[in-house]
Amino acid sequence: MIEYRQISKTFDDGTQAVREFDLTIPSRTTTVFVGSSGCGKTTLLRMVNRMVDPSVGQVLIDDEDVATRNKVELRRSIGYVMQHAGLLPHRTVVDNVATVLRLNGVGKTQAHERALEVLTTVGLEESHARRYPSQLSGGQQQRVGVARGLAADPNILLMDEPFGAVDPIVREELQGELQRLQRELDKTIVFVTHDIDEAFALGDQIVILKKGGEIAQVGAPADILAAPADDFVRSFVGLDKATRTLRVEERDGRSLVVDGNGRATGVLA
């Protein structure tokens, strides 16, 4: 369980990214922070592994304040996946995945074995392992990033817009893959995105943020769609848009789903 207690963050240049933020993230679920740029979602994410320290307030993991933990050790115990993968360009794929294990003092052979195992889990082949990151496609690099985050088998996986830089088709594929992984691995995933569709696709708990880290609404996707807290949420999730206001029309004995513009988008199964 991750808890944010009365968190505020003011950066050195005076910008206030987050103000009096409270939230509980249950274990073994996926929580998605979603909001436009400048809402403080990445800042909140990076507080979990102390890449950012709050100015005021506490972040607790299983009732332990992270501020009491050694930064470096804390980071090694938490998986982190970022946009552009952030792989080390001078290390091969397998070395990249083995990074945290090696940092934790695991022997080279053992670390490589484990790394190859995780690479298979994220859907990469052994032939990719000896290549350099720049020799892979964007989607493959992102898979390596996920594998690296999972290599040390952490309980928590932080994901900062991990699929933001890949094209829409690959993104959807990676999202599907992550859903599968989560069913198998049961991690506590904290995911940041600005894409509400991605948030709905992946999140058990969605946290919609306004500027300054103010929570607009927290809840399961269905709760938010059924009962948006205010106009901001309604507009943010697109309820005022024709594409989200669907109705059913009977045609030739089938039930067609039609959007607000009268365009057919699917059939009821």
């Binding site: 970022m82 952030g86 360009p89 990074t99 940092l103 690296r148």
Partner: peptide, 18 residues
């Protein structure tokens, strides 16, 4: 060196010397 690479290395738990 790309700052994102450095940031990623730090996030993995490398010490400043590492």
């Amino acid at each position: 060196v790309d700052q994102r690479t450095v940031d990623a290395a730090r996030a993995q738990g490398m010490t400043e010397i590492q």
